[in-house]
Design a protein around this nucleic acid. Structure first.
Length: 315
DNA sequence: AAAAATTACAACCGCTCGTAA
DNA sequence: ATTACGAGCGGTTGTAATTTT
């Protein structure tokens, strides 16, 4: 069976030669593509229009970003995929200069394996059943062997803003409301190697002085006991030097997440079952460890501007 | 050194969707 | 309302390059 779209003329298939690329590139840069089905004839190519379109979009387009994916891009892909699933074209819209095909290939050849190595199901982004038992046990041992430091009241607050992404509504409805709508605090998750810094923003009433920005339990776990107290396996430490940017908050990429991190993360999620006894104003930092764009999905609290600001205070 | 296996990614195929006739 | 058609999407395959045996 030949191509439906081009059965009349003989059509070349397979990889594109540099000569073909040149013809297509020159034609489209001077004339635009117009109707793709007419492109091959006008450009002097023995290809079908569909093939021309694909070649242009995925390879010849001048605004394509070349080179391998950055860690930032990788985090974005993972987090957007967690919300949208295999909607590659939608995901690619979050990555300027990247194509759906490229994102899909990167996912299938690389990210999938990484997630599996972390004990995560690439489809659901949840911990694989096979990993759960092992990790739960390891985590319980970790908790037993570590005496947490109580974080005193008013030890600091953290305010940050996040970039809005187009799926906010979806996140709000499906993550926050369904998961956390009944409790005043769920879990504080795991701060997971993020280093937070902020620059003073006097226009923002919620902004905090530079010197009160803190690391939240780097490499440790934050959790809440059945009395509603916040505990951490490490005490808070000051983070002295803010890093300036146009954003209020700069989030440094985390180191690669380990299985142990994920264990803590998922174990702590179960603390939401304790919600009836808790009444503090803490917010959940648990699920957003990968990407600033996903931070809102893990938050709960009396947020009046829900997706913009998150405060950690009076725990 | 050669063959086999694996990986990376380019390209294809069938389908759906939107739109215009 | 129906049909035809092009564009776009996502699963899948093909293939060159690389790594392993």
């Amino acid at each position: 069976m030949g191509h439906h779209c081009c059965s009349k003329q003989k059509v070349k298939r397979g990889l594109w030669s540099p000569e073909e690329d040149e013809k297509l590139f020159n034609y489209i840069t001077t004339h635009g593509h117009g109707s793709w089905s007419s492109v091959p004839k006008l450009a002097g190519l023995q290809r079908c229009g569909k093939s021309c379109r694909l070649r242009w979009i995925n390879y010849l387009r001048p605004d394509l970003k070349k080179g391998s994916f950055t860690e930032e891009e990788e985090r974005t892909i993972i987090e957007v995929h967690r919300i949208l699933g295999n909607r590659w074209a939608q995901i690619a819209k979050h990555l300027p200069g990247r194509t759906d095909n490229e994102v899909k290939n990167f996912w299938n050849s690389c990210i999938k394996k990484k997630l599996l190595a972390q004990g995560l199901d690439p489809n659901t982004h949840n911990l694989l059943p096979s990993s759960q038992k092992h990790l739960k046990r390891a985590h319980n041992n970790a908790l037993k062997s570590t005496i947490p430091h109580h974080i005193p009241p008013n030890s600091g607050s953290l305010v940050f803003s996040v970039d809005p992404i187009s799926d906010q509504d979806y996140i709000m409805k499906n993550d926050i409301e369904t998961c956390f709508s009944t409790s005043s605090i769920v879990d504080l998750g795991h701060a997971n190697n993020f280093v937070w810094s902020a620059k003073d923003n006097t226009q923002n009433p919620n902004a905090i002085p530079d010197n009160s920005v803190s690391l939240i339990s780097p490499n440790g776990y934050n959790m809440v006991d059945d009395q509603g107290s916040l505990w951490s396996t490490q005490s808070l430490e000051s983070f002295e030097q803010p890093i300036g940017s146009d954003d209020q908050m700069v989030i440094h990429p985390p180191e690669e997440m380990t299985i142990c991190d994920m264990e803590a993360e998922y174990e702590l999620r179960n603390l939401q079952n304790l919600d009836a006894t808790l009444n503090s104003q803490c917010f959940d930092f648990g699920f957003g460890d990968y990407s600033p764009t996903m931070m809102p999905s893990c938050l709960y609290g009396d947020m009046t501007s829900p997706m913009d600001h998150v405060a950690w205070d009076n725990c």
